[in-house]
Design a protein around this nucleic acid. Sequence first.
DNA 1: AGGCGCTTGTGAAGACGTGCACAAATCGCG
DNA 2: CGCGATTTGTGCACGTCTTCACAAGCGCCT
Lengths: 230, 230
Amino acid sequence: MARLPEYLRALHSLAENGHETVSSEGLASAAGVNSAKLRKDLSQLGSYGTRGVGYDVGLLIEQIEYVLGLTQRRAVALVGVGNLGHALAGYDGFASRGFRIAALFDADSGRVGEEINGLVVRHVDELPRVAAEESIAIGVIATPAPAAQQVADQLVAVGVTSILNFAPCVLSVPAGVDVRKVDLAIELQILSFHEHRKASLTALPTTGGSALTALPGGLAVTESQEAIGT
Amino acid sequence: MARLPEYLRALHSLAENGHETVSSEGLASAAGVNSAKLRKDLSQLGSYGTRGVGYDVGLLIEQIEYVLGLTQRRAVALVGVGNLGHALAGYDGFASRGFRIAALFDADSGRVGEEINGLVVRHVDELPRVAAEESIAIGVIATPAPAAQQVADQLVAVGVTSILNFAPCVLSVPAGVDVRKVDLAIELQILSFHEHRKASLTALPTTGGSALTALPGGLAVTESQEAIGT
DNA sequence: AGGCGCTTGTGAAGACGTGCACAAATCGCG
DNA sequence: CGCGATTTGTGCACGTCTTCACAAGCGCCT
Ligand SMILES: NC(=O)c1ccc[n+]([C@@H]2O[C@H](COP(=O)([O-])OP(=O)(O)OC[C@H]3O[C@@H](n4cnc5c(N)ncnc54)[C@H](O)[C@@H]3O)[C@@H](O)[C@H]2O)c1
Ligand SMILES: NC(=O)c1ccc[n+]([C@@H]2O[C@H](COP(=O)([O-])OP(=O)(O)OC[C@H]3O[C@@H](n4cnc5c(N)ncnc54)[C@H](O)[C@@H]3O)[C@@H](O)[C@H]2O)c1
């Protein structure tokens, strides 16, 4: 389940605050989900809760980390050390959550050699050699969109089977390779959609607004917290 | 629907390449979705396709932009101009997709006054005044997690009803306020999970691996392209 | 004008996720 | 030792999303 990492973060936060056990209710509210959903998710991992008490925070962290494959610290290669790439390279949140940025790559020879956070930027042509040395598990693409497909192909060629893509484009990859995408403009547009919907609802509550905005069942947007109420 | 922005991006890309019409099949593959799903999504907006021909790219762009509320360029306030905030402030992908970064805020007085991309960083205390001037529609939080809730409260207080949160924590907001979250570590952990699953599947194909990794129906992870095959 | 190929729009079936509600289980306390 | 308070784990029902499959509609070519 995609919610496991969220639970894990909430658990770490609870552990830091000294909690040794949590009820499903408490963990659910900390993770921002329904308590029944949380229990169902956790029961999929096996029964690690005690009825009448709750879940052992430490044990649960261990179990979730095992299921997520975080027992081994995976090596991440970041390709494209531009505006966004710099921020990512300098981010310490990866290291603290089970990942190690193992290498930085860029195609711009002006950037090659630059040192960021103790890592030196290499030319993307060195990817095969470095991948062999470091056993890269995950590739992060932070290049402009036109270069993303090519970079993805290069990553796949050196054996990377998981890619996180920040470029606003769809990547085509062979079966067995997993791609996740983060597109900030899409997130903003979804928010804009809600703004638009909220505005047209309050503006014309009686007439119901124009035909386009007053859709039959309303448009559903999945993911994320949504507190559109009354 | 949360897929509309993806369609919009694909349409813009097609328009740049000179296409005047697209079939649902073509647009679907460009957006990385099923063609039936795409047709059903578009039919919700009204009938803007011609049977036997396809969809008019320009008209469809116009319609989707209207539904998403992109006809008005919304003002975005960015709070937290640190590592990530700098990258966001310098990103031109927002402007080209219907948004305008209207103001930058930070609590660190050392950063206040700094100019990024033509915008000067202001102190977060000025938020009420600036919000009144600029009519901020969307707030982006790029502060450390401990400060995120407080910033969210401040944003809500000045009338912001849509928040994009980069801090790894859940925000509690009143009903009517919409929050979307981007957590890169979670994305990586989901990829790690797939890596782990792939590894244990190939390692022990006959025994089926340990009880934890060989779960009843397999764990489903939503979102994103997944090409785990054969 | 008529037929043919192509594409949209949609009905229906199935898969999936969600949340309620409750039985089973455990702990603490008298 | 037993009882009640508390919390997990889960059966069930409901709503949503997805996908297939096909009729209806449109344009082009003869
Ligand atoms: N900056 C942001 O805040 C932000 C936000 C959302 C999305 N994005 C996306 O992230 C990507 C990068 O954004 P950015 O602002 O860092 O752009 P950028 O232009 O600052 O950086 C891109 C970097 O990629 C390098 N590059 C180009 N082609 C390459 C190749 N074939 N191999 C390796 N490296 C190559 C360039 O040399 C450059 O250093 C873009 O696709 C952008 O749309 C950025
Ligand atoms: N850098 C990344 O690539 C990255 C990636 C994923 C997530 N994040 C998250 O984004 C957030 C910011 O990351 P960062 O690397 O930019 O951190 P950072 O420490 O570089 O920047 C944080 C900025 O927020 C400012 N700030 C602190 N409290 C504030 C307040 N109350 N009001 C206004 N501004 C305040 C600080 O002065 C600082 O400038 C963090 O929550 C981090 O976990 C960052």
